[in-house]
Design a protein around this nucleic acid. Structure first.
Ligand SMILES: [Mn+2]
Ligand SMILES: [Mn+2]
Ligand SMILES: [Zn+2]
Ligand SMILES: [Zn+2]
Lengths: 141, 141
DNA sequence: TGTACTTTGCAACCCGGTTGCAGTTCTTGT
DNA sequence: ACAAGAACTGCAACCGGGTTGCAAAGTACA
């Protein structure tokens, strides 16, 4: 995936009904660039000077408008990753994530969809969260 | 599962090489009684007077000796549940958990073992965490 | 251009988890 | 039975991720 240019970024926000402010464009650009799931802290560290709360609220807004989804990978901090272009964050769009125990990176396994079966009677399934953990591509070499 | 009596509880701790102190016996008894995954806060609330840190360290000790396993269910607090009698917490003993979005309860799905396939090349799998979310038995009625 | 609404930055707070330390209890060797 | 050492406990304080309140700055739109 190549990184979209400024006008494209703006278009992406607009298409999600998010006002394209300067900060939000930067956040979106960064999320596109890294192409993995990042925590609020990691995001903050990737800018010279940015207010943590503003980043937090940008991500919150993005998530509300289904531009990003969040992953609890067990590292202690929530991570955020860009959704696919036309994602509506429905159950069938859920996918697994891989968390590297060594470098702490977390990736979307977009093709690893979740098995929905074997649930006990009378339990109603609404969502699932599957995190695979181990060594990533780079760390297993 | 019925709740073990005092001497049995003591035996359980001893068999895991954990010194059976008064507090630890109480914690083990409570974990047996509730028969689900509980958070540190919930555990604390189930005693009239107990120090949070002592409970915390009891759970930590239990986990080290593989008497309990912990579950990150996305509720914001780690939960702990008793392991099966001869559990060694190996990958093949991993199971899924169910978290109720309404009552916040979390259960072990001991028979729901995890599918291990479809991982990208060069990724080394060490552990998995699968949490199903929805409405539990009681809440779906 | 004026006004209402949104976004931003800062400070402060919340809460789960964790550590330091001193006092107590328990284990072990004599 | 006793002393020395190790393990456990309770309290206070800290830490870090996440969150909120509020006033200032920015933006949309009539
Ligand atoms: Mn993802
Ligand atoms: Mn379990
Ligand atoms: Zn890695
Ligand atoms: Zn429930």
């Amino acid at each position: 995936m190549n990184i979209p240019m400024k006008p494209e970024l703006e278009q992406i926000l607009l298409s999600r009904k998010i006002q394209p402010t300067a900060m939000r464009l930067l956040v979106l650009e960064e999320l596109s660039r890294v192409n993995m799931a990042v925590s609020l802290n990691e995001l903050e560290a990737s800018f010279d000077k940015a207010d943590r709360v503003t980043l937090y609220r940008s991500l919150k807004t993005f998530r509300k408008h289904k531009l990003v989804h969040s992953i609890e990978d067990g590292s202690g901090s929530l991570k955020y990753a860009l959704c696919e272009e036309d994602c509506e964050c429905k159950p069938e769009e859920l996918h697994a994530h891989f968390h590297c125990n060594k470098c702490n990176a977390t990736f979307c396994l977009k093709d690893y969809h979740l098995p929905v079966s074997g649930l006990p009677r009378r339990f109603v399934l609404e969502e699932m969260n599957l995190v695979l953990k181990g060594l990533c591509d780079a760390c297993s070499a």
